[in-house]
Design a protein around this nucleic acid. Structure first.
Lengths: 212, 212
DNA sequence: GAGGGAATTCTACGCTTGATGAGTTCACCC
DNA sequence: GGGTGAACTCATCAAGCGTAGAATTCCCTC
């Protein structure tokens, strides 16, 4: 026993902030706390910039627990990027139904995802990390095509459907980065309704309008 | 003298790849080589991902020389981001003149910048580095407003000019990221002319058209 | 109430990073 | 042709990184 729990102080000075090892009573919520802290850090600094030590500290937890619960940093990253399927389905729903106003519904839903704390962290982390490294970029693409485009394709019609979706997506991505990631002055200050009003016609045209 | 240059081998084994210290004849081009390598690395991996040692090695130079010529990594980064003023002026020129086709000219010029090896490296480095961390994002903003928007502002008119420029810029940024950074399938495969044909009307509307 | 296993702690290894500082060689100018 | 300073190499530092494993404490089940 390195640090006596009893009254026998021995001669040495006992560290103050030393926590005792061992299991805690009940559900400590440690696993969830780690995931929250990880999302926050990955979102703020990207994969490389986020450090396990900082994540652990911010979760009020020993670094070893990350390994205990999630394995490697890679695995933790995977867990942090798990974005509830519900959100991608929201986007799919947005472009179904009345094609006349699909653009407006899509923009509105998209902005909501970026403003919803439940999804914004994962989106930020994905974007921040996807753009630096090729590996993350691949994952980004996979997610995009597997979930997003696959869900949306059926509603886009054949022929130039994917191209239309791609350019609409590129536009939306640019808006999100300018508004929520880099927070460029005018873009960040846009009134939500105004932004939708300005963009919706463009997205509408990219999805269903004449292009050439 | 640690490693005799003469014929006296002494008893010890002499390292093979050891270069002699000291100044080289003429202009060694070291300074420029470092900058080139730095641009390449920053563009490929962003600020955090690029390491001074790799940059030095790729420039065929000792790490110490980076400090000698540029000081800190931060200073080197600044030097690498130095994007020739000529390029921002190109964009400014593109939106002056005949307002009817400013959109098409702007898109065309913008794509050219991303495809020109002389400017694409700096652009990639800026985008890759700016998007990862909040700190880099701030620097990005400062640069954007100081140089870019300042150059363009005179041509944008008052009132909603900045807002129009911001949303057009966000669109263009999204296109560049999707096409040149992440290289999302359909966006990367777009025929250049087609891409311009599809986007130009949008940019034109954002710049000069009715919005509400 | 005994035992297995989960949760938690600490310590440490091997590696890479950016930053120094001291020392060496040589080009160039007076 | 001598002196100055720029160009260049090397060794090393202190930090931080991800990973690893041993040790400890305690819940839970039988």
């Amino acid at each position: 026993m390195r640090y006596p729990t009893g009254l026998l102080g021995s001669g040495t000075v006992e560290p103050e902030n030393r926590r005792t090892a061992g299991r805690r009573a009940g559900d400590s919520g440690t696993r969830a706390a780690i995931l929250d802290a990880a999302r926050e850090q990955f979102a703020a600094k990207g994969y490389d910039g986020a450090s396990l030590r900082v994540i652990a500290a911010s979760a009020g937890v020993d670094t070893g627990l990350i390994r205990h619960f999630y394995g490697s940093k890679d695995d933790l990253f995977d867990a942090a990027l798990e974005i509830p399927q519900e959100f991608t389905q929201q986007l799919a729903r947005a472009i179904t139904g009345d094609p006349e106003h699909a653009g407006a519904r899509l923009v509105e839903t998209y902005l909501s995802l970026w403003e919803n704390p439940a999804s914004s962290g994962a989106l930020l982390a994905i974007v921040r990390s996807a753009i630096v490294s090729d590996r993350a970029a691949d994952r980004f693409q996979a997610m995009l095509t597997a979930r997003f485009l696959a869900d949306l394709a059926p509603y886009l019609g054949g022929g130039d459907g994917p191209a239309r979706a791609a350019i609409a997506g590129a536009h939306l991505l640019g808006i999100a980065i300018a508004r929520y990631v880099v927070r460029i002055g005018p873009m960040a200050e846009f009134d939500r309704a105004t932004l939708i009003a300005w963009c919706a016609p463009t997205i509408q045209r990219y999805l269903t309008g004449p292009l050439d």
